[in-house]
Simulated scan of single mutants.
Amino acid sequence: MADGIPILPDDMIQNILERLPVKSLMRFQCVCRQWRILFKTQYFITNHLHHSNHQNPCLLLQRYGIDNPSNFYCLDSEMQVSELQKPPLLNSLKRGEIIGSSNGLLCVEINKHDPYYHLLLVWNPAIREVRRVPETKFHEDYRNYLIGFGFCPITNDYKIVITYSSGLYADLSAVKVYSLSTGAWREVELRLNDTVRLNSRSVTVNGVMFWLVLKRFEEYTENRIVSFDLEAEEFTVITIPELQPIKLTVYEEKLVIFSENKNSEHSAIDMWVMEEGVGASGERWGWTKKYTSSPNPCLLNPTCFLNLTTIWRNEIVFCPPGEEESTVLLNPTTGEMKKFAISKCDYGYCRSNYAESLVRVEE
Rank of each mutant, 00 (worst) to 15 (best):
V237P: 03
T182W: 10
N47H: 02
V273I: 12
T195K: 08
Y178F: 14
E265D: 11
M271S: 03
T288P: 00
R191A: 10
T195V: 06
R284V: 15
T163A: 09
L255C: 08
G4T: 07
N331S: 04
T327I: 10
K338Q: 11
P245W: 06
C58G: 11
N296A: 14
R131N: 11
E18H: 01
G4Q: 05
N261Y: 09
G286K: 15
D141H: 08
T41C: 02
N261D: 14
E315C: 13
E242W: 10
T236P: 00
V273C: 06
D76K: 08
I98T: 02
G100L: 04
K338Y: 12
P297H: 03
G335E: 11
N307S: 15
I37C: 07
G65E: 11
S281Q: 13
W272N: 04
N111I: 09
R224F: 09
L121G: 04
D229T: 08
I110W: 06
L329C: 09
N353V: 15
M1K: 05
M271H: 13
G183N: 01
I246C: 09
D270W: 14
S294C: 13
T195G: 11
D270G: 07
E275L: 14
F44H: 02
H113C: 09
G4H: 01
T288I: 15
D229P: 05
R27A: 06
F235M: 09
S166W: 00
N199T: 01
G322S: 05
C74I: 12
Y145I: 00
S227W: 04
A268V: 06
L59C: 06
R201M: 03
W211Q: 07
E222R: 05
S267E: 08
I240S: 01
I342N: 09
P297K: 12
V108R: 03
E231Y: 13
K86G: 04
Y116N: 08
F210W: 04
D171L: 03
E253S: 13
N56H: 05
S326I: 00
T303N: 13
E219R: 15
D3P: 00
Y178Q: 02
E233K: 07
F340W: 07
H51I: 09
Q244P: 00
K94H: 14
V278S: 11
T333H: 12
V250D: 06
N53P: 13
A174K: 11
D346V: 05
C58Y: 05
D194W: 03
I5Q: 00
L243G: 00
D11K: 02
L61G: 10
N223W: 07
I257S: 09
A170E: 14
N261H: 13
C345G: 10
P321V: 12
R27C: 14
L20H: 01
L300F: 11
M209C: 07
R143K: 12
P57E: 00
H139G: 15
F235A: 06
E97I: 11
P115R: 01
G167A: 10
R33H: 14
R27F: 00
Q80S: 14
L59P: 02
R313N: 14
I238N: 00
K86R: 12
M79S: 08
D11C: 01
Y64S: 08
G104A: 06
L190K: 10
C304L: 07
V359G: 02
M79Q: 10
L329K: 07
L308R: 08
V359T: 05
G207T: 04
Y251Q: 08
R63C: 14
I316D: 01
H51D: 05
T46C: 04
P320S: 12
T334Y: 06
W312P: 05
L84I: 09
L106W: 02
